[in-house]
Design a protein around this nucleic acid. Structure first.
Length: 636
RNA sequence: GCCGGCGUAGCUCAGUGGUAGAGCAACGCACUCGUAAUGCGUAGGCCAGGGGUUCAAGUCCCCUCGCCGGCUCCA
């Protein structure tokens, strides 16, 4: 007999080898019905597998992360089967579950059109209807190699060859389709009731652009059609929040063929942007930063010295002045180096926090441009902190606090990554080790959870990245903290220490918004264009009901204007309903309807864009509340 | 840059080889109105750009540019 120890620490005994699905049924038929996969001693395991020793046993349904992943992964297998049924000469690459679904990469002469996706989906439905069991079996390395090379599955052969010598090689089979797979899988295809193939895309084998480009099909699946419909509906809703769409509708910015990747900011976008910068300056002043501004174009020698000429050239733009080579800055740091070196600092001056909102240009591949999220010129809210080695930890913690404070003001949730030494890097392994550890310690001291992003550091140092999500849950790097021992060396930076000797300072590069453009993109999608009042391009719209109310409405508008409120009046000969509709669709926080009653007693009828009609208020009461809301930067 | 899709009025989109359309927006006139669209009228297009096929091209083919979804890359 073996013990199955359940989540509540109780246990049940079964004969050795009892299938997990039987155990689930024994506990509760409902549990067995909902279960997608089991977790045995922390390992995801097929429900069909037997329990052979005492173990912690847990059953995961579709509502768990692991359950969903297994469910989607099984759907990917069914898709691969459907594709091979319809297009027999297709070779299979890989097909994992991803955040909201799954994909599978195929090598085939066919180019899949949307009609093909429908055909494949129909074929998948057939396979689901057949309710084929997913069966697992193990095989030796040789057996696996001969099986998959005989089948012409070159990519699988490559995968097998890369498995460690002693790895257990497993295959899963449903019907006559089998695939190399570590598993686990759901019991049978019949569970995969609601499937939708979403789109196709090219993807390099193993993500390397030197390799062949494969065809990837993305899809998603759910246990019930209603859940799938809900998900598809959410996707539609998300498209309405797209910053590119809202940027146009709200007249914030535009991007033109005349400058792909170079956004034009319109007046309303600039108002928003200036508010962000004002907030930024206020907070940086408070936290002991000074502000500088350095040129956009600097000569070749500088970029050679900084290492950008060697390590970053393919992303840079160049020009020639008086027969000398110059480059347009892709980063602000070399400019800051020059400012630091401009005079001699004492250890008493450190840490020196030197901020710059700097316009940088980077040559990005045309295919990656995306609204304001990825552009070819953007403003970084940069800062370079020069410090003594023993100030590193506190300074990093200070920046982490700053980023956290900023993101909370906007109500953003974020996740953190620690990126380590890339292949194209300057400096010794030891220095990288020290720098990476300093970042890690700061994260731990602050109790922040983080992921390791191997090899994704900047060429001059490791970094902590702060990622935010857009309307489709795609994540974008915004804030970053990079520790740099290289630049001070390259630029021969020095300060005079307590001992009267010259010493090398350590440096942090950091941004909070990251790119102001990208941050605005995130901001637009996060609020769906309904910005907090302090950021709203127009904060109040005054709506006179008829022409005879114009003078009262204008006096009111002037009064608000004098208080520093961004106010507009809609004095067109239109009905109030029409004016409200327009103000609503512009997502203006407050509409003040004024007619006979208001003009008579000096009041305003307040309408809030999301709370609706708030009724009449004396003007002073309204302005008082409004100014307070703006001052506090409230989200409402 | 690579794979696939797309490009028609300011915006959203119809238009399957035979005279370029609608709604909204703009402009004009009337209406003076109480919490999400008043009515009537006017104007607006080198159908992304270039080349080709055809008696005839928005429509079919080729090239270029741009956009969208991915890959790769990154703030």
């Amino acid at each position: 007999m073996v013990k199955a120890i359940l989540k509540d620490d109780s246990f049940r005994e079964y004969e050795q080898g009892t299938k997990l699905i039987e155990i689930a049924k024994d506990i509760s038929p409902r549990l067995a019905k909902a279960a997608v996969v089991a977790r045995v001693n922390g390992e995801l395991t097929d429900l069909r597998a037997g329990l052979h020793e005492d173990a912690q046993v847990e059953f995961l349904d579709f509502n768990t992360e692991g359950g969903q992943e297994v469910f989607r992964h099984s759907t990917a297998h069914v898709m691969a089967q459907a594709v091979q049924n319809l297009y027999p000469d297709t070779k299979l690459a890989i097909g994992p579950a991803i955040a909201n679904g799954f994909y599978y990469d195929f090598d085939t002469k066919e180019t899949f059109s949307s009609e093909d996706l429908e055909k494949i989906e129909a074929e998948m439905k057939k396979i689901v209807k057949e309710n084929l069991p997913f069966e697992r079996y193990e095989m030796s390395r040789e057996e696996a190699l001969s099986k998959f090379s005989a089948a012409g599955e070159d990519y699988k052969v490559e995968l097998i060859k890369d498995l460690p010598e002693d790895a257990t090689i497993t295959c899963y089979q449903q019907g006559d389709f089998e695939d190399l797979c570590a598993g686990p899988h759901v019991l049978s295809t019949g569970l995969l009731k609601a499937v939708k193939l979403l789109n196709t895309a090219g993807a390099y084998w193993r993500g390397d652009e030197k390799n062949k480009m494969l065809q990837r099909i993305y899809g998603t699946s759910f246990t019930k059609k209603s859940l799938l419909d809900e998900h598809l509906h959410r996707l539609e809703e998300a498209k309405r929040r797209d910053h590119r769409k809202l940027g146009k509708e709200l007249d914030l910015f535009s991007i033109h063929d005349e400058g792909p990747g170079f956004p034009f900011f319109h007046h309303k976008g600039m108002v928003l942007r200036n508010e962000l910068e004002e907030f930024w300056r206020e907070e940086h002043r408070r936290r002991g930063y000074q502000e500088i501004r350095t040129p956009v174009i600097l000569n070749r020698e500088l970029w050679e010295r900084s290492g950008h000429w060697d390590h970053y050239q393919e992303n840079m733009y160049f020009t020639n002045i008086d027969e000398n080579d110059y480059a347009v800055k892709p980063m602000n740091c070399p400019g800051s180096m020059i400012v630091f070196r401009n005079r001699l600092y004492s250890y008493r001056d450190l840490p020196l926090r030197m901020a710059e909102i700097g316009l940088v240009h980077r040559h990005e591949l045309s295919g990656v441009l995306h609204g304001l999220m990825r552009v070819r010129c953007f403003n970084q809210d940069d800062a370079h902190i020069f410090m003594l080695p023993d100030q590193i930890r506190d300074e990093i913690i200070g920046v982490i606090d700053l980023v956290d404070y900023f993101y909370k003001v906007f109500g953003f949730e974020y996740h953190v990554e620690l990126s380590t030494k890339p292949s194209k890097a300057m400096g010794s392994d030891e220095i990288w080790e020290t720098a990476t550890n300093a970042l890690r310690e700061a994260l731990q001291a602050r109790g922040l959870e983080y992921r390791i992003n191997e090899g994704d550091g900047a060429f001059y140092g490791p970094k902590i990245d702060f990622h935010l999500k857009d309307c489709l849950d795609r994540t974008w790097q915004c804030g970053t903290i990079q520790l740099d021992f290289q630049m001070p060396e390259k630029f021969d930076l020095e300060y005079v220490g307590e001992d009267g000797q010259k010493h090398r300072p350590v440096m942090i590069h950091r941004v909070v918004f990251g790119s102001i453009e990208r941050f605005i993109g995130i901001l637009i999608e996060h609020f769906a264009g309904a910005f907090p009042t302090w950021l709203a391009p127009v904060q109040v719209k005054v709506l006179p009901i008829a022409d005879r109310h114009h003078s009262y409405a204008r006096a009111l508008t002037d009064k608000l204007f004098d208080l520093g409120v961004r106010v507009e009046i809609d004095d067109r000969s239109e009905k109030v309903n029409y004016k409200i509709r327009e103000a609503q669709s512009q997502k203006i926080p407050y509409m003040l309807v004024v007619g006979d009653k208001e003009a008579a007693n000096g009041s305003v009828a307040v309408r809030h864009r999301s709370q609706g009609d708030l009724g009449p208020q004396p003007i002073e009461q309204f302005t008082e509340g409004l100014l307070e809301e703006i001052k506090q930067r409230q989200i409402r």
